[in-house]
Amino acid sequence: EVDTLELTRQVKEKLAKNGICQRIFGEKVLGLSQGSVSDMLSRPKPWSKLTQKGREPFIRMQLWLSDQL
């Protein structure tokens, strides 16, 4: 189980620290539009309420944070 709230907090922190905009992060890392990324980072759904497809971007965020992506 992933703590989506904590994960998105860490992602936002790393984006800010490295000067990466959400649009680029969305396109290059998540394969999503800036609007989708913005929504996901500001209002993450609980892991238990996400479908497999809904969980994929959060898994990619985890990999990106651990420099595996």
Rank of each mutant, 00 (worst) to 15 (best):
L30W: 06
G26Q: 01
R23N: 14
R9K: 10
N18R: 14
F58E: 01
S48N: 11
F25Y: 01
L50Q: 00
K12T: 04
R60G: 04
P57G: 02
R43N: 12
R43F: 09
Q22M: 11
P44T: 09
W47C: 00
G54V: 12
L32K: 07
K14N: 05
L5C: 12
L32Y: 04
Q62S: 10
P46W: 14
Q68D: 09
Q68M: 12
M61Q: 00
R60M: 02
G19F: 05
L63N: 13
L30A: 02
L7R: 12
K53Y: 11
Q10K: 15
Q22C: 04
S38G: 10
R60I: 01
L50A: 01
R55I: 01
D39H: 04
L5G: 11
V11H: 05
W64S: 00
V11W: 03
T8W: 06
T51L: 10
L7H: 05
D3M: 07
P57E: 08
D3W: 05
S38D: 13
T51Q: 05
S66W: 10
Q10E: 06
F58K: 00
T4N: 05
K14W: 10
A16L: 09
F58A: 00
M61A: 10
E13F: 07
I59W: 04
P44Q: 08
S38T: 13
Q68R: 11
L65P: 00
T8N: 07
Q52L: 12
E6Q: 04
T8Q: 03
I59L: 13
A16Y: 05
K45P: 11
V29Y: 08
K14Y: 12
E13C: 06
G54N: 06
K12L: 03
G35D: 08
T8A: 11
L32M: 12
G35V: 11
R55T: 03
S66K: 15
L5T: 14
Q10T: 08
K53V: 04
V29D: 02
L7C: 07
Q52K: 15
S36P: 10
Q34M: 11
I20N: 02
E6L: 07
V11I: 07
V29L: 09
L50I: 02
I24G: 03
P44V: 07
G19A: 03
L7P: 09
Q68L: 11
D3G: 05
P46T: 10
Q22T: 08
G19S: 13
T8R: 08
P44Y: 12
K14C: 15
V29S: 03
Q68S: 10
K45Q: 08
Q10A: 05
Q62W: 13
F58W: 09
F58Q: 00
L50M: 05
L65Q: 00
Q62D: 01
L15Y: 09
R9G: 08
K28Q: 14
S33E: 04
P44E: 01
S33C: 12
L15N: 07
G54K: 02
L5E: 15
K14A: 11
K53Q: 08
L5S: 05
L7Q: 08
L65D: 00
S38N: 14
R9C: 06
D39W: 03
D3V: 02
V29P: 03
K14G: 01
M61R: 00
A16W: 04
Q22W: 12
L32E: 05
T51V: 09
W64R: 00
S48L: 06
W64G: 00
L15S: 10
R9E: 09
G26H: 01
E13D: 15
L32V: 15
V37R: 05
E6D: 15
L5I: 14
K14I: 12
L30N: 02
L32G: 05
S38Y: 13
L5M: 15
E6C: 05
P57S: 12
E56W: 03
L69M: 13
S36T: 13
R55A: 02
R9V: 08
L50P: 00
C21G: 11
T51M: 08
S38A: 14
A16K: 13
M40C: 12
G54I: 14
K17E: 11
G35Y: 08
S42G: 04
P44I: 09
F58I: 01
Q68N: 11
I59V: 10
E13Y: 10
F58G: 00
P46V: 02
N18D: 08
G54Y: 07
S33W: 08
E13M: 13
V29N: 01
K17M: 10
K17D: 07
S33T: 12
D39Y: 03
L15W: 03
I24V: 12
D39N: 06
S36F: 10
N18H: 13
K17F: 04
L15G: 09
T51C: 03
V29R: 09
R55L: 02
W47T: 01
S42D: 14
F58L: 04
Q62V: 03
L41Q: 04
T4R: 08
L50H: 00
C21W: 09
P44D: 02
K28L: 03
L32N: 04
Q68C: 13
E27H: 11
K45E: 07
I59M: 12
I59E: 14
G35A: 13
K53G: 03
K17N: 13
L30V: 04
T8K: 11
P46I: 11
G54D: 15
M61C: 04
C21F: 10
L41F: 10
L63P: 01
T4V: 05
F25V: 01
D67P: 06
I59G: 03
A16T: 11
A16R: 14
S42C: 13
G35K: 15
E27N: 09
T51S: 11
C21D: 09
S48F: 06
R23S: 09
W64T: 00
R60F: 00
Q22S: 10
A16Q: 11
N18P: 12
P44H: 05
R9I: 07
E1V: 06
C21T: 15
T4G: 04
K49Y: 04
R43A: 12
Q62C: 04
T8H: 06
R55H: 01
D39R: 02
E13I: 08
K53N: 05
Q62N: 02
D67Y: 03
K53S: 14
L41N: 02
M40K: 12
S36V: 15
L63I: 06
E56T: 05
Q10S: 07
K45I: 10
E13A: 11
Q52M: 09
R43P: 03
W47H: 00
K12H: 03
S48P: 05
S36N: 12
K12W: 01
G26A: 15
R60P: 00
W47K: 00
T4I: 08
W47L: 02
L5Q: 12
D39L: 05
R60S: 02
D39P: 07
V29E: 01
L30H: 01
D67T: 03
M40S: 06
C21S: 15
S36K: 15
Q34K: 15
S42W: 02
Q10F: 05
S33D: 15
R55S: 01
S36A: 15
L5Y: 12
R43S: 15
V11N: 08
Q10V: 07
S66H: 13
S42Y: 10
K14V: 12
E1L: 04
E6M: 06
R60W: 01
I20L: 12
I20M: 12
Q22E: 13
V2C: 08
E56H: 02
G19Y: 09
V37E: 02
C21A: 12
I59A: 10
K53M: 03
G31H: 11
